[in-house]
Structure formats: C-alpha cells, structure tokens
C-alpha cells in the first residue's frame, strides 16, 4: 500500500511533465494534421535554456532565492522556446504547407535530428547536472519499512502544472485567439474566408505548444537535476503516446493521457522490471494506435467512400 501510494505520487509528477509536452503534439496535429516530430527536441532545447538561465541567475546575478530563480527560469524558457518553435515552423514547415503530404513529416524528422545535434555540438555531449534544489520532503506516512514522502519539487510541479493548464484552458476556450484556433481546426479554408489569419493562428499554436513544452523542460530540470542533448527523443515519443492515448486533438485528452503514461511507466518500473520500461511505453503506443486509434476522448473516424 505504501509503495503504491509513493509510486502514485511519482507517477503523477512524471505524468504532468508528459501531459505538458503532449499538448504541443495534440494542438499541432489538430490544426495542421501533422505529427510534429521535432516537438520532443523542442522540449529538450527548453530544458537546456532552463539550465543556462538557472546558471546565469544563480551564479552571475547571485540571486539566492530558489523560488525567484525558478520563476525567472520559467519565464525565460517559455519566451525563448516560443521563439525557437516559431522560427522552426516558419523555416521548416510553413513553406511545405499544402505540398506533398510526407514532406512536412520528413522535414520535422530532419529538424529533430538537427536540434539534438545542434545542442550536442554547441553545448557538448556530456550530461549537464545542476545543483539539487527543493529537495526537502514532507513525510505523509511514516513507517519503519517504507515511508511515503512527497518532495517540495513534486508539490511545485503539481502546482505550476495545474495553474498553467488552467490559464491555458482559459486562453483556448475564452479568448478570440482560442476561438480562431478552434475554427482553424474545424476547417482551415472556411476560417480563412471568414477573415481569420490562418498562418498567424498556426504560428501561435506552435508558440503555445512550445511555451507548455518549456514549462515541462523547467520541471524536468528541477525533477531530474540533469539534462542531456539526447533527452528529447524518448520523452517526445512518450508524450506523443500520451496525446494519442488521450485522443489526438483533444486538450484534456492530452493531459489525461500524459498522467496515464506517467503512472504506467512508474508502476511498471516498480512492480516489473526497469529494463523494459521503454518497451512498455512503445508497446502501449502500438496497442493504442491499433485498437483504439481515436483514443479516450477523441472522435471516431468514419471512412468516407
């Protein structure tokens, strides 16, 4: 029971990170029907931005407060990653809109390779460890054999994720920008005829996806305390699995899918074997795509003849 509870806490934390990345996949797929293969690497870039900003703030500026430092990190990572993703969309995807269907996917694969190697070349291939932060824990259940704890950083991850998701939900549901975005998802041509700047809306979708991925990047840095240039691929695939599991195109679906994937991964490692945890994630992806491609909250697709 204690182990279960502890893994539940860990799984929700990991799941929040996957959910934040998954939103980026789901929104881009919803609006332009493309699997943004490079999104996992955009997340990795954001984690690096977080590390660099954290170092600037703590060592150069000498800010002692971890809360303030992380807040600055969060803002910087969100802004800079948004600019990254905006540029990527502008350079690698927009010129291919309406072209050969595979072209954007191949371009995204190329971009993914480029990003991870760019970071490798620019920042070196070694892991980047940061000083552990927010390591204090609250003991929920004390026992001689196994104590269930929740750390400050887990609490912070839950809180920040919840607040930002609510803000994001408001943005998509209640603002003209969100309305334009949903209109483009339904019918891009019609939206454009009604005077919506489709290109701008798509760009903003990439910006929003990147901003949320950047939140995940900061959380990743805080949670694991180390980032590497190769950290984009596997979390990216897992977050994509989460998006598909939740029902691609559905925002709540992405969050639910993210939490599920996080929980499955953590429980798998705890109760089975850690060796095959990535195999488990990929197998879930395969099973979900084959047996329930519409996901949990997605709409079923009827074949048009």
């Amino acid at each position: 029971m204690e182990v279960f509870l502890q893994q539940l806490i860990n799984g929700i934390t990991l799941g929040s990170i996957y959910g934040l990345i998954a939103i980026g996949y789901t929104m881009v797929f919803g609006i332009i029907g493309m699997v943004n293969f490079a999104h996992g690497d955009v997340f990795m870039v954001s984690a690096f931005i977080a590390v660099i900003t954290f170092l600037i703030v703590t060592t150069w500026l000498g800010i002692g407060s971890i809360a303030l430092a992380l807040f600055i990190c969060l803002i910087a990572a969100m802004v800079l990653t948004s600019i990254w993703n905006w540029t990527i969309e502008r350079v690698a995807y927009r010129p291919l809109r309406g072209s050969f269907r595979l072209a954007p996917l191949i371009s995204a694969i190329g971009m993914s390779i480029f990003l991870s190697n760019f970071v490798q070349v620019a920042q070196g291939p070694r892991n980047k460890p940061v000083t552990p932060m927010l390591t204090d824990v609250i003991t929920l259940i004390r026992s001689d054999i196994y104590s269930v704890t929740i750390s400050y950083k887990q609490i912070m991850i839950w809180a920040v994720t919840a607040v930002l998701l609510m803000g994001f939900w408001y943005l998509v549901q209640k603002t003209p920008l969100g309305r334009a975005q949903r209109a483009c998802e339904q019918d891009r041509k019609m939206a454009s005829l009604l005077g919506i700047d489709v290109d701008r809306t798509i760009s903003l979708t990439f910006v929003m996806g990147a901003a949320l991925a950047a939140v995940a990047g900061v959380m990743y840095m805080v949670y694991y305390g180390v980032v590497s240039f190769s950290d984009g691929f596997t979390p990216g695939v897992k977050a994509f699995t989460a998006a598909v599991l939740g029902g691609i195109g559905s925002l709540p679906g992405a969050v639910i899918g993210g939490l599920l994937i996080g929980l499955i991964e953590v429980f798998w490692s705890a109760y089975f074997t850690i060796d095959y945890k990535d195999v488990a994630a990929f197998s879930i992806l395969v099973v979900v795509l084959i047996f329930m491609p519409q996901g949990i909250l997605g709409k079923p697709e009827v074949e048009k003849v």
Partner: peptide
C-alpha cells in the same frame, strides 16, 4: 562532429527545395 548536424539540416533543406 558536424556530420549529423548537417545531415538533419540537409533533410529539411532538401524537402524545402524539392519536396517530391
């Protein structure tokens, strides 16, 4: 060191230049 980097960039560039 730059082989893979250039490879990724080339993949994007080629798609932009000749998508087919």
């Amino acid at each position: 060191q730059y082989r893979t980097l250039l490879f990724g960039a080339a993949m994007v560039g080629i798609m932009l230049w000749k998508p087919r």
